[in-house]
């Protein structure tokens, strides 16, 4: 059954690449931050699937750490980094 979990992990990685190619679009900084949060939540799923597909249970711990620290980055953004609504961006 590890073929199945690796296939789903590949599908989620395709999702991530699609989000990366259109990544970091405006109009506000929060829209860009949401790309990083999407990578956090999808990365947890990919890591759990990889832990099953490759037979390394320790990767579940990595997924837990990733979930926790992506949330810390999101809180740091909302509380400390975001001061203005629309900012100048040359190539939007």
């Amino acid at each position: 059954m590890s073929t199945m979990s690796l296939g789903v992990a590949l599908f989620l990685l395709v999702n991530l690449v699609a989000a990366l190619v259109t990544a970091a679009r405006g109009p506000t900084p929060a829209d860009r931050m949401l790309t990083a949060l999407l990578f956090g939540s999808t990365g947890v799923g990919v890591l759990a699937l990889l832990a099953h597909a490759m037979g390394i249970p320790a990767l579940v711990d990595v997924a837990l750490t990733l979930a926790l620290l992506a949330a810390i980055a999101g809180i740091a953004f909302a509380r400390r980094a975001w001061h203005g609504g629309h900012e100048e961006s040359p190539d939007d």
Binding site: L34, L37, L64, A67, A70, G74, I75, A78, R79
Partner: peptide, 19 residues
């Protein structure tokens, strides 16, 4: 993992929407 991610995502979403 799931309740942890749910709680973290709810907190982050609230913080960003509030801001």
């Amino acid at each position: 993992i799931w309740p942890l991610v749910l709680a973290a995502s709810a907190a982050v979403s609230y913080a960003i929407a509030h801001r």
